[in-house]
Computed example of a mutant assay.
Amino acid sequence: MNDAKNDVSNDASLTTGGTQGAAIRLERALPDPPSVVWQALTEPEQLKAWFPCEVTVADGIWKPGAAISFLFGPEADNLTMQGEVLEAREPESLAFTWGEETLRFTLTAQGTGTLLVLIDELRPGIAARNAAGWESCLDLLATGTRDKDAWQPRFEHYSAMFSQALGEQEGPPAGME
């Protein structure tokens, strides 16, 4: 997943309503075909390279109803969240709960690469922090690098964008500053 040519805006977009009250949408044009991107979304070793925590799926199989554990490290007090696979259609779409949120990944062939769309359905107060965080994660997926100093300016940008529609935005969870 290196040398991504990105003709898609990296900015997250916002929708309101739905079951959680808000959803953020991010897109990335990736140079690899959907089958390769699917592996990055579902194989434990590849997930470790870009997802914000360790992901364990029951029996190692991404299928609807499978339980998922999300294990954060000591920087987040070794927090463990639970989730469930909602949809797994290789290599087109993957959806699962992530704590109280729902994450949806859609992969669409685009030339020899893939357009990846991530939609995070979440409560309104955390839209800016999650948009900033997912933008960093998707940068890592696309390029293999992450700018550790980028989160705060991104958060401020999204807070300004989203606060009028959603109200005050919460910063990072405790221990994740």
Results as ranks from 00 to 15, higher is better:
residue 1 M to D: 00
residue 1 M to C: 02
residue 3 D to G: 14
residue 7 D to W: 11
residue 7 D to I: 11
residue 8 V to G: 00
residue 10 N to M: 14
residue 17 G to L: 13
residue 18 G to R: 15
residue 22 A to G: 00
residue 22 A to D: 03
residue 24 I to P: 02
residue 26 L to Q: 11
residue 26 L to Y: 02
residue 28 R to P: 05
residue 28 R to F: 07
residue 29 A to H: 15
residue 30 L to Q: 08
residue 31 P to S: 13
residue 34 P to I: 09
residue 38 W to Q: 09
residue 42 T to A: 07
residue 44 P to V: 06
residue 45 E to R: 12
residue 46 Q to K: 15
residue 47 L to F: 09
residue 49 A to V: 03
residue 51 F to K: 04
residue 52 P to G: 09
residue 52 P to W: 12
residue 57 V to T: 08
residue 57 V to P: 05
residue 60 G to R: 10
residue 60 G to W: 13
residue 60 G to D: 07
residue 60 G to A: 11
residue 62 W to H: 10
residue 63 K to V: 12
residue 63 K to W: 08
residue 64 P to Q: 09
residue 65 G to F: 08
residue 66 A to Y: 05
residue 67 A to V: 12
residue 76 A to L: 15
residue 79 L to S: 05
residue 79 L to I: 01
residue 81 M to L: 15
residue 87 E to V: 13
residue 91 P to E: 14
residue 93 S to I: 14
residue 93 S to K: 13
residue 94 L to N: 10
residue 95 A to T: 10
residue 100 E to S: 13
residue 100 E to Q: 05
residue 101 E to K: 00
residue 102 T to W: 01
residue 107 L to I: 12
residue 107 L to M: 09
residue 108 T to L: 15
residue 113 G to C: 12
residue 116 L to S: 03
residue 118 L to P: 03
residue 121 E to T: 09
residue 121 E to D: 15
residue 123 R to A: 03
residue 124 P to A: 06
residue 124 P to Y: 12
residue 125 G to H: 11
residue 128 A to N: 04
residue 131 A to M: 07
residue 136 S to R: 12
residue 137 C to T: 06
residue 138 L to E: 06
residue 138 L to H: 06
residue 139 D to M: 02
residue 139 D to H: 10
residue 140 L to D: 02
residue 142 A to W: 03
residue 143 T to A: 04
residue 144 G to V: 02
residue 144 G to T: 04
residue 146 R to Q: 13
residue 148 K to M: 15
residue 148 K to N: 12
residue 151 W to D: 07
residue 151 W to P: 07
residue 153 P to K: 14
residue 153 P to I: 13
residue 156 E to T: 14
residue 160 A to F: 04
residue 165 A to R: 14
residue 166 L to E: 03
residue 167 G to D: 06
residue 172 P to I: 08
